[in-house]
């Protein structure tokens, strides 16, 4: 751990330096334009300090994003519409609902595909085709159709999140349920085991490492799906809505704060799945 901390900090410092340089470079145009309009000259140091403190910079400086993020997380009551925690909670709950739906759908489809040749031939191509359609194109249609049926709020977002997250779970579980080799299947035949016994005692436990690997991808995909679903809905709640309103009003700091909020949420979600994975596999003796 100690050995890896230095390289990590080095990379982080490099990113911050490049970010500051980029902020100065991209925001300087505005500073010069303002100065020219007022008919004054700006020195280099004046220019630099101005580019890092603009209200609506092209690229906000790291400390501005950090402040925006801090304000959003700690500076507001968490029930306030200005609180990032509030918006993150809205997005999080839809993400979890969608992730749950997607995981269940993915597992059930995988079980069907592994046990039925007809399903193997018919479902898999559709599942793959479903992921080639850009989610940005399909999300507004789903939202609009469901809204016309009177379904609003969390469910449409969860459906889009599920649409994205079922696929990695499906692919991982098909691979996992097929992981046992011919010898292990032969062994069960020598016991005259039923298909159900083969599933519960061999295929399902053997698929666990594959399941967790795909759950990590699936939960991140569910978050992306939820945020995308919050964009076209005219939604006023959620990190996606926060991104959208930020871009409406040119509030770049708000956009970046929401972006980082989403990134932190994604990291936390994947981390939690990772912890559950480690505990489960350890208890099952599959990790040392």
């Amino acid at each position: 751990m100690k050995k890896s901390i230095l390289p990590i900090l080095t990379v982080l410092a490099a990113i911050v330096v490049i970010w500051y340089a980029g902020a100065v470079w991209l925001n300087s145009q505005w500073t010069y334009d303002q100065a020219a309009r007022a008919g004054v000259e700006v020195t280099f140091s004046e220019m630099v300090s101005d580019t890092l403190t603009q209200a609506r910079p092209v690229l906000p400086a790291p400390h501005q994003v950090a402040k925006g993020l801090w304000d959003g997380i700690a500076g507001q009551k968490i029930t306030s519409k200005r609180s990032l925690v509030y918006h993150a909670w809205i997005t999080f709950s839809a993400t979890m609902a969608g992730f749950g739906l997607g995981t269940i759908a993915g597992i059930l489809l995988a079980v069907g595909i592994v046990h039925s040749r007809a399903m193997d031939m018919s479902v898999m191509p559709w599942a793959i085709a479903s992921q080639t359609i850009p989610i940005l194109a399909i999300a507004p249609m789903v939202i609009v159709v469901l809204a016309s049926l009177g379904i609003k709020g969390m469910l449409p977002k969860a459906i889009i999140a599920a649409y994205l997250s079922f696929f990695p779970v499906l692919v991982g579980m098909v691979k996992g349920l097929r992981a046992p080799d011919a010898m292990q299947l032969d062994l069960l035949r020598t016991y005259n085991a039923s298909d159900a016994q083969g599933f519960w005692k061999l295929r399902l436990p053997a698929s666990m490492p594959y399941l967790f690997a795909s759950l990590k991808v699936g939960i991140a995909a569910a978050l992306v799906g939820t945020i995308v679903a919050e964009l076209p809905a005219g939604a006023t709640q959620g990190l996606g809505a926060r991104l959208l309103s930020g871009s409406y009003y040119g509030q770049t700091i708000q956009i970046w704060a929401a972006l980082f909020g989403a990134a932190i949420l994604a990291a936390l979600l994947v981390l939690v799945v990772g912890v559950v994975e480690r505990i489960t596999l350890k208890r099952k003796g599959m990790a040392q």
Binding site: Y191, Q197, K201, M208, K284, G285, M286
Partner: peptide
Amino acid sequence: KARSYGYVFQAAGLYPWRTIAGNVKLPLEI
């Protein structure tokens, strides 16, 4: 079907998620 033989394969093929006792129990559970 009458389970009249035990078969030992070239590889042990134990289930990694079961203890040794759990592995030996597998046919008995089935």
